[in-house]
Design a binder for these strands. Structure first.
Lengths: 124, 124
DNA sequence: TAAACATATGAACAAATATGCATATAAAAG
DNA sequence: CTTTTATATGCATATTTGTTCATATGTTTA
């Protein structure tokens, strides 16, 4: 049942499928990619990323800026740390966060340009 | 309690915060952006996107290619349709899906280049 | 027009996850 | 060395979401 094709007639299109299989990324890459996009798929984390894009901020700055609970911010910062998207340095009692590299910015701006074009299309 | 600052001393850094507020996208944009990244944050949807990147495929092709339930594929295609990332055309009983525009590809490749650099760094 | 086929949709369930409370850790100040 | 301050973490919970089953819709063919 699992191995039977769903369609009976001219579908599936075997030649198309075999070609796609050749050019598609492997399963592990796709899962890694999805995990990476998951990080960007939350507005709290996105706000944090946008905030520390230009200059480093401490946890407390982020709480104040985003109007969020300190716990919430710290949890999301841990997620960002674990995914290697941010770096941090301690200065006394405070810990300052900043972006790890500019891939983050690139992904973000690719997303933003899609969003903004969508907004344009809706105006028409 | 909500409106009190968490830190008492030299934090928060008001000048930094006010500058960040000026350059950060507004809340609605951030939510839209997060919603958009959510679409990419699932390996099934990513596989579908990669598969129809070069040429259109029907639902059944996708099921066969990805080894997934027809219902699962259709549900994810609906998500992709709703988010305007894919377009489709009917040909008899079959429905062929393809990418709506090349923003999708751009976002994907931005993500992939981050992933691949991460892999390089781990080899060192 | 009835049956077969390709795809879509609704409901239910399980798994993932974002948030907040309580508390732990770590640094500085008194 | 005790207290205060800044941040992190474990746990509980509510919400979201991906998958599947059952079934509906739309198209073709007999």
């Amino acid at each position: 049942m699992e191995n039977e094709y769903i369609c009976k007639e001219k579908c599936p299109h075997f030649n198309k499928i075999s070609e796609v299989k050749l050019t598609s990324p492997n399963d592990d890459s796709v899962i890694d990619l999805a995990d990476m996009f998951k990080i960007f798929a939350d507005s709290t984390r996105l706000k944090i990323i946008c905030a520390i894009m230009k200059e480093e901020l401490c946890v407390c700055d982020l709480c104040e800026l985003l109007g969020l609970n300190q716990t919430t911010v710290s949890h999301q910062l841990k997620t960002l740390r674990d995914s290697k998207l941010v770096k941090y340095r301690r200065d006394g009692k405070q810990i300052f966060y900043s972006l790890e590299d500019d891939h983050v910015t690139q992904i973000l701006s690719a997303g933003l340009s899609h969003i903004s074009e969508e907004a344009e299309n809706e105006q028409l």
